[in-house]
Simulated scan of single mutants.
Amino acid sequence: MEVLNRQRCFEGEQLRVQHRSQSLDCDMTFSLYLPPAARGGVVPLLYWLSGLTCTDENFVQKAGAQRYAAEHGVAIVAPDTSPRGEGVADDPEGAWDFGLGAGFYVNATESPWDRHYRMYDYIVDELPALLAEEFPVDVERASIFGHSMGGHGALVIALRNPAKFQSVSAFAPIVAPSQCPWGEKALGQYLGPDRENWKNYDSCALIEAGALQLPMLVDQGDADDFLEEQLRTGLLEQACADTGYEATIRYQSGYDHSYFFISSFVGSHIAFHARALEHSLAED
């Protein structure tokens, strides 16, 4: 493991770290914000999963989240969105919605993707173990959030691992990748043609199958160009209504899909997670 960069930020530290990933079989980079409270002991952890074309740096440079993380005393880790490096397969046509920068947080089962594209295992198992060993973060007190493809990843990972996360939130998530062009392209190539296998990475399908309740918050801009075709937030509303799954789903007037949207509401998301993490500590 190598710390590539270290900057002071709101009395804490913003780090960029590179390490060799066993699950992805390549070098990976993640960004980690440690609040000032981390100097006095371990702090709760938020995972941020970014969207298509992003790296680990987009969120930490654009969202303005460090201010709120410092106030609430939580760390935020932002991993990259896919494996990278020599030998890692990419979309043969160089498309931006598949391959490099578009790992969709799944464990690929189809060749050639299955060699490197195991982002689900990386987020759920490998990254937490590394963070717990190397940094003053409490991976047992963790929550997860993300944007677009990363919102999909956050919802799916939390719904499949409710014992690992105290809460989940998302900005403009792809709520049903088995029912939109982005998702059909990615899941079809990463997982193969059997759509039953896709349900393991579809938040609506997981809720309909009886996923355990977690505190859930979703923000969606009503001026988002991707809302109707790709994000399909209404399907999540319907799945929650049909099953009695409690979720706060908010449509924000005039907001689009950009980091201007994320930065406008990231403070409320971090406060939402901080409350859930504090509640878990009180229960302990």
Rank of each mutant, 00 (worst) to 15 (best):
His152Tyr: 05
Glu208Lys: 06
Asn107Ala: 02
Ala158Gln: 07
Val156Glu: 05
Ile144Asp: 14
Tyr33Ile: 08
Phe59Pro: 03
Gly188Met: 13
Thr109Val: 05
Val74His: 01
Gly99Asn: 02
Lys164Ile: 04
His257Val: 14
Gly99Pro: 00
Leu217Ile: 04
Ala176Arg: 11
Trp96Ala: 15
Leu155Trp: 13
His116Gln: 07
Ser178Trp: 11
Glu110His: 13
Glu283Asp: 04
Pro193Lys: 07
Ile144Cys: 09
Tyr120Ile: 06
Val124Ala: 07
Ala69Ile: 04
Ser203Ile: 04
Glu278Arg: 15
Arg84Met: 06
Glu184Trp: 03
Leu131Val: 00
Ala211Met: 07
Phe265Met: 15
Ala129Met: 04
Leu46Gly: 00
Gln18Met: 01
Glu229Gln: 10
Val139Thr: 15
Leu52Arg: 05
Ala70Phe: 06
Arg118Gln: 09
Ser143Arg: 10
Glu278Phe: 15
Ser143Pro: 12
Asp138Glu: 03
Glu184Cys: 14
His257Asn: 05
Val88Thr: 03
Met1Glu: 02
Pro136Asp: 06
Arg118Phe: 11
Met149Lys: 06
Asp219Ser: 07
Gln61Arg: 10
Ser21His: 11
Tyr68Glu: 14
Gln179Tyr: 09
Lys164Glu: 01
Arg8Gly: 05
Cys204Ser: 04
Asn5Val: 06
Asp125Met: 06
Arg275Pro: 11
Pro215Gln: 09
Glu229Cys: 13
Ile144Ser: 11
Glu126Ala: 13
Ser111Asn: 15
Phe226Trp: 00
His72Phe: 03
Ala241Asn: 13
Leu191His: 03
Val266Gly: 10
Val175Ser: 00
Asp202Gly: 10
Ala70Met: 09
Arg6Phe: 14
Gly183Cys: 13
Pro177Phe: 02
Leu214Cys: 03
Ala37Leu: 03
Ala274Ile: 10
Val60Arg: 00
Glu13Gly: 10
Trp48Asn: 05
Leu191Arg: 08
Thr53Arg: 04
Thr109Pro: 03
Val77Asn: 14
Glu86Asn: 02
Pro79Gln: 11
Trp182His: 14
Arg232Trp: 12
Leu212Val: 08
His257Phe: 00
Gln166Trp: 00
Met28Cys: 14
Leu130Glu: 00
Ser21Met: 07
Phe59Met: 06
Gly153Val: 05
Arg67Tyr: 08
Leu187Ser: 10
His279Ile: 14
Phe171Gly: 06
Ser169Ala: 08
Phe272Ser: 03
Ala239Asp: 05
Gly151Cys: 13
Arg160Lys: 14
Ala205Thr: 01
Gly41Met: 12
Ala129Tyr: 02
Ser82Thr: 10
Pro79Met: 02
Leu191Tyr: 09
Ile76Trp: 15
Phe261Ser: 08
His72Asn: 13
Glu110Asp: 06
Ala276Arg: 00
Glu110Met: 10
Ala38Asp: 00
Ala241Tyr: 04
Gln252Trp: 09
Phe10Gly: 09
Ile123Met: 01
Glu2Phe: 10
Glu184Thr: 09
Ala282Thr: 11
Val266Lys: 05
Tyr259Phe: 08
Gly192Ala: 08
Asp219Val: 13
Phe30Trp: 07
Asp219Met: 01
Asn161Cys: 08
Phe171Lys: 01
Gly188Leu: 02
Ala223Gly: 00
Ser148Arg: 11
Gln252Val: 03
Phe171Glu: 11
Ala102Glu: 09
Ala186Asp: 09
Ala239Lys: 03
Val175Asn: 12
Leu49Asn: 08
Lys164Asp: 12
Glu140Lys: 02
Arg16Phe: 09
Leu130Tyr: 07
Glu13Asn: 15
Pro128Asn: 04
Gly192Glu: 02
Arg20Cys: 15
